[in-house]
Amino acid sequence: MTSDTTVAQLVWTEDGVTRQAQWRSEAGNPAPRRVTIADDRTTADAAYRLACEGVGLLWRGDFQNARQLLQAMARRIERKPRKPRKPADAALDAFNLHRQAQAQRARTLGMLLIPLEPDYTIALRRAPDAREACLEAYGAADAPSIVSLRELQGLIGAHEWRKKGVEIRVLDGARIHPHYGVFSPVRGEYLELVARAPLPANSLAFDIGTGTGVLAAVLAKRGVKRVVATDSDARALACARENIVRLGYAAQIEVVQADLFPAGRAPLVVCNPPWLPARPSSPVERAIYDPDSQMLRGFLAGLAAHLEPGGEGWLILSDFAEHLGLRAREALVAMIEAGGLEVLRRDDIKPLHPKATDATDPLYRARSAEVTSLWRLVARKTAQ
Rank of each mutant, 00 (worst) to 15 (best):
A90R: 15
L58P: 11
L326Q: 12
E132Q: 12
C239K: 03
K381W: 01
I168M: 01
V227D: 10
T2E: 12
R169E: 07
A251I: 07
K80G: 15
D93Q: 02
P178Q: 00
C134H: 04
P274W: 07
L363T: 02
A127P: 03
A141I: 10
L374T: 06
R365C: 11
Q252N: 01
S373D: 05
Q384V: 14
A205F: 13
K83Q: 15
I156A: 09
H306D: 05
A338K: 04
D207E: 06
P198R: 08
G340N: 05
D4A: 15
R60K: 14
R33F: 08
Q9Y: 02
L109S: 00
R82V: 10
L204I: 04
R125L: 09
L296N: 02
T36F: 04
I168Y: 03
I288C: 03
V378G: 11
G56F: 09
G28Q: 03
V371H: 10
M295G: 11
E189S: 10
R345Q: 10
V245Y: 14
L149A: 03
E26D: 12
A366T: 04
L191T: 02
A44C: 04
P309C: 08
T13G: 01
R196L: 06
A383I: 04
G213F: 12
A130V: 09
R126D: 13
Q294Y: 07
V186W: 09
P81M: 07
S368V: 09
T212N: 00
A205I: 02
W161R: 09
D361A: 01
A236L: 12
L155F: 12
A21K: 10
Q104A: 08
Q153A: 15
A287W: 00
V7E: 15
A143T: 11
L97G: 07
A234R: 12
N65C: 14
G223I: 06
M111T: 13
A328S: 12
S232M: 13
W375V: 00
E192R: 01
A94H: 08
G310D: 11
A143C: 06
E117V: 13
A356Q: 02
D93I: 11
Y249M: 01
A369I: 03
R175Y: 06
R60N: 00
V269H: 09
R33Q: 14
M111H: 14
K164T: 13
V343W: 03
